[in-house]
C-alpha cells in the first residue's frame, strides 16, 4: 500500500498544471524511494519526467512497487477541491484501483478534513530508455526570464533557434511578419548576486517548437531557476528542481531546413 503525506497540496496542483496539457493519462510509479511519473506526449515529441523523493513528504510509506494509473484530468479536478496550504495525504491499496486523497485544513479556527476518492486505471505505457548524455552546453537562468522569453517569441513565430556560444545564449524567432532575438550574456553578475550561469564545451545551435517550451514554462511556479542542457542534434533537457523533487522535460529538436 501507499501512504504519502504532503505538507502542502499546492505542490501537487502545480505539478499537475505543468504536466496535464502534455499527457492525459500516466502511471505514478510508487516505490520506497518516492513517486515517479514519466510519459511522452501523443506526438512523441516531448517527454515529461517528475520525481518526488520519499524524503520530501511529511510521512511516506510504500511497501512494494505500485504503479498507479491516473487520468490527469480527473486528478486535476480532485486537486482543485484542495486549498493550496492544505495538508494532502495520498493513499492507495495494493490492488491500485482507487486513489484516496485527504485534505486537512491548517487553519486554527476549525478542523476541516475532506476526503475524496478517484478511480485508477490500467495504463500500458511505453518505457523509454533515456541515455546518459554529456551535454555540450548547460545554461541556468531564472525560470521567470525563460518563461518571458518563450512567451514573447511565441507571439512572433512557431519555432525558436537557441544558440549557445562564447557570447552567451541567444533565442531567435523568425516569424512571417516579424522576427526577434534575445541575447543573454555570460556576465550576468552586475549586482554581485549570481543570477545564472552558462557552461559550454562547444557551441550549440538547436531549433525547437515554441508551443512545447511555453508549456514547459508552467513549471516556473515550482522553481525560481531552470536549467537547459543542450548538445547538437539531441533532445533538449529542461530541468526544474525544487525541495521535494524535480520535473524534467525532454524535447526533440527540429531538424533540416
Amino acid at each position: 500500500m501507499l501512504e504519502a503525506k504532503l505538507s502542502e497540496a499546492a505542490l501537487l496542483k502545480r505539478l499537475l498544471d505543468a504536466v496535464k496539457e502534455l499527457v492525459s493519462d500516466a502511471n505514478f510509479e510508487c516505490n520506497e524511494e518516492g513517486i515517479q511519473l514519466q510519459a511522452m506526449d501523443n506526438s512523441h515529441v516531448a517527454l515529461v519526467s517528475v520525481k518526488l523523493y520519499a524524503s520530501g513528504f511529511k510521512r511516506y510509506r510504500c511497501d512494494r512497487p505500485l504503479p498507479l494509473g491516473v487520468n490527469l484530468g480527473s486528478l486535476t479536478k480532485v486537486l482543485k477541491c484542495a486549498k493550496d496550504d492544505d495538508i494532502c495525504t495520498l493513499k492507495a491499496g495494493d490492488d491500485a484501483d482507487i486513489l484516496s486523497l485527504t485534505y486537512e485544513a491548517k487553519s486554527a479556527y476549525a478542523d476541516r478534513i475532506a476526503e475524496y476518492e478517484m478511480k485508477l486505471m490500467d495504463i500500458d505505457a511505453d518505457q523509454l530508455g533515456i541515455p546518459d548524455t554529456d551535454y555540450d552546453a548547460s545554461v541556468t537562468m531564472p525560470s521567470s526570464e525563460f518563461l518571458r522569453i518563450v512567451r514573447d517569441l511565441s507571439l512572433l513565430g512557431e519555432s525558436v533557434r537557441i544558440e549557445v556560444s562564447k557570447e552567451g545564449i541567444r533565442f531567435v524567432s523568425d516569424g512571417e511578419a516579424a522576427n526577434g532575438n534575445i541575447l543573454i550574456k555570460q556576465n550576468a553578475e552586475a549586482s554581485g548576486k549570481k543570477k545564472g550561469s552558462i557552461e559550454m564545451n562547444s557551441a550549440v545551435t538547436l531549433t525547437f517548437s515554441l508551443k512545447y517550451l511555453v508549456n514547459f514554462s508552467k513549471s516556473s511556479s515550482l522553481s525560481k531557476k531552470v536549467q537547459l542542457m543542450m548538445s547538437n542534434d539531441v533532445p533538449l533537457l529542461v530541468s526544474y528542481a525544487f525541495n521535494q523533487g524535480h520535473i524534467r522535460y525532454y524535447l526533440a529538436p527540429k531538424i533540416g531546413d
Binding site: H44, L47, Q127, L128, K254
Partner: peptide, 14 residues
C-alpha cells in the same frame, strides 16, 4: 521550414 523529429529516434522505446 525545419521538420520536427521525434524522441523515439533518440531514445530506445521498449
Amino acid at each position: 521550414g525545419a521538420g520536427q523529429s521525434r524522441l523515439d529516434s533518440f531514445f530506445g522505446v521498449s
